[in-house]
Simulated assay, not measured.
Amino acid sequence: MIRRFLLVLTLILAAAPAFAVNPDEMLADPALEARARTLSAELRCMVCQNQSIDDSNADLAKDLRLLVRERITDGDSDDEVLNYIVSRYGEFVLLKPRFSLRTLLLWGAPVLLILAGGASLIVFARRRAGKPTGSKLTAEEQARLDELLEK
């Protein structure tokens, strides 16, 4: 009995993000609702910050979901809806920021860091390769080595 209860509880908790979009928010047209869900998955909840508005239960996320659906029913394209929301909340509202002059450093920083790390490894390896290891032989050791090599 307890195992069944735990199984049901686990299934309910696993589906918790699916409950974020309330039935009263959904559009009647399945095609428009699919567009709204796709756009909602691309937008960050400004309260939760690591969830999309589609997964968040915050009041602001609900307002944004309603705004997305309103703009879609008004006939806006997906890009127009995203541009409208970005104009109000900034680029931070996008879970995947667009590539632009402002976000060039954001997108280029990983590449620059990898290149800088590789260059520093090469420089370090070359400097190390040129340095002799150990110490010089004493006169006595050198004489003994010469004697062994002549044999």
Rank of each mutant, 00 (worst) to 15 (best):
L137R: 05
F19G: 13
R71N: 14
K96R: 13
I53M: 03
C48M: 05
R44Q: 06
D79E: 14
C48A: 14
T103D: 00
A143V: 09
D63A: 15
K96Q: 11
K151N: 09
A109R: 01
L13Q: 11
E25S: 05
L94D: 05
G75H: 05
E33H: 08
N57Q: 10
A15E: 09
R144I: 14
L11W: 08
K62Q: 13
G130S: 10
A125W: 10
E140N: 09
R35N: 07
E42F: 09
L43P: 01
D29S: 11
N22A: 15
M26E: 15
R37H: 05
V8N: 10
L82S: 02
A18C: 12
L82T: 11
I53L: 05
E141I: 05
K131Y: 00
R65I: 04
L104P: 00
R88M: 13
S135A: 12
R37D: 10
R65V: 02
V21R: 04
A116L: 14
A143R: 07
D78E: 15
Q142P: 02
A125V: 11
R88V: 09
I12T: 14
S87M: 08
N50G: 12
V111D: 04
G117H: 04
A139V: 07
R3T: 13
F92R: 14
T103M: 05
L7R: 15
E150Y: 01
A116E: 02
T10D: 03
L13P: 01
R88G: 04
D55K: 09
S100E: 00
V21A: 08
L11G: 15
K62D: 10
S135H: 11
T38I: 11
K151R: 10
F124C: 02
L104I: 06
